[in-house]
Amino acid sequence: MSHYHPTREEEKAIHEELASQELGHEHHVHVTPYWPMLAVFVTLVIMTVVTVLTAKFIDLPGTGNLLLAMVIACFKGTLVFAYFMHLRYDKLLNTVVVAASVFAVVLFIGFSMLDLKARAAFNHEYEAGEITTGGMNRVVANANEIAREKALEHGHHGDEHGEHGDHADEHGDDAHTDGDHGADHGQDDDH
């Protein structure tokens, strides 16, 4: 049961074996080639010129120019990553690190834009009077109509405010339209 304590000789043997295995892949240093790198550099310069030209002289609809510029930039970035930074010749692990961080960036920008875009639309509708405050369930087609209704109701209540029949009247209404109780109540609260 004492495998847990190998002797010095056993350990030495294991280490020597491991060391000899490691020496095997020690000299795998990849020397950067000259011509491919020059080709990459020239491509990068050409792509820079292309970016400027497309942005200046081609007018795409919507965010077309932006997307085109980003596609070119991504292509350039990939070239730098793959060749100048040796990812193509390196261990896969380094590429995984970059991929993970790029993935995190995409998540970060994507979700933030998703939310803020929706809220920009929401704000726009609110300013246009298409929706009112008070929650999503109270989205109504015509805010002006509601405003008029409210004004009328307000006036109605104001007229009757001093009268004794006020409460009796409301109770009577509630009794007739049972289902509307909640809604009525909510609107009364708003005043």
């Binding site: 979700f111 998703l114 939310d115 929706a118 809220r119 929401f122 999503m136």
Partner: peptide, 12 residues
Amino acid sequence: GHHMFASETAIA
């Protein structure tokens, strides 16, 4: 986003 349920929009 689950820290922002009160400040986010419905879809998020």
